[in-house]
C-alpha cells in the first residue's frame, strides 16, 4: 500500500471506521507514515472548519419577498409573477 492509494482511500472515506481488511492495511501504512498522517489530519481539519461555520439563516425580508413573488400571500393561482432573470454567478 503506497501513499497515493492511501490518499485516495482516506479522502473517499474520511468518516468511516477503519475496520475492513483494506482499512487495516491503510491503518498500518498510516502508523508508519507521518506524511500521510499529517495529510489526513489537515484534510480532516479543513472539512471540520467548513462544517463548523454557522449555516446562513433566511432573512425575514427574503422570505416575504419570496412569498410575494409566488403570490401565495394573496392566495392567487396560476403562474407566479417573476421579475427579470435570476443569476447565480
Amino acid at each position: 500500500m503506497n501513499c497515493r492509494k492511501v490518499y485516495r482511500y482516506i479522502c473517499d472515506n474520511l468518516d468511516e471506521k477503519l475496520d475492513s481488511p483494506r482499512c487495516r492495511q491503510i491503518r498500518r501504512h498510516l502508523d508508519g507514515c507521518p506524511e500521510c498522517q499529517e495529510y489526513l489530519k489537515s484534510i480532516k481539519l479543513t472539512v471540520k472548519l467548513y462544517r463548523a461555520a454557522p449555516p446562513p439563516q433566511i432573512p425575514a425580508a427574503t422570505h416575504n419577498r419570496l412569498m410575494k413573488v409566488l403570490n401565495l400571500e394573496l392566495g392567487k393561482h396560476g403562474t407566479p409573477a417573476r421579475k427579470g432573470s435570476r443569476a447565480c454567478r
Partner: peptide, 21 residues
C-alpha cells in the same frame, strides 16, 4: 453556500420555487 452572496442566493431561492411551482 453555492453563490456566496445574499442577493444571488435570494434570486436562486425565488427561481427554484418558481420552477417547482
Amino acid at each position: 453556500k453555492m453563490c456566496r452572496n445574499r442577493e444571488r442566493a435570494e434570486e436562486t431561492l425565488q427561481d427554484t420555487f418558481i420552477n417547482v411551482f
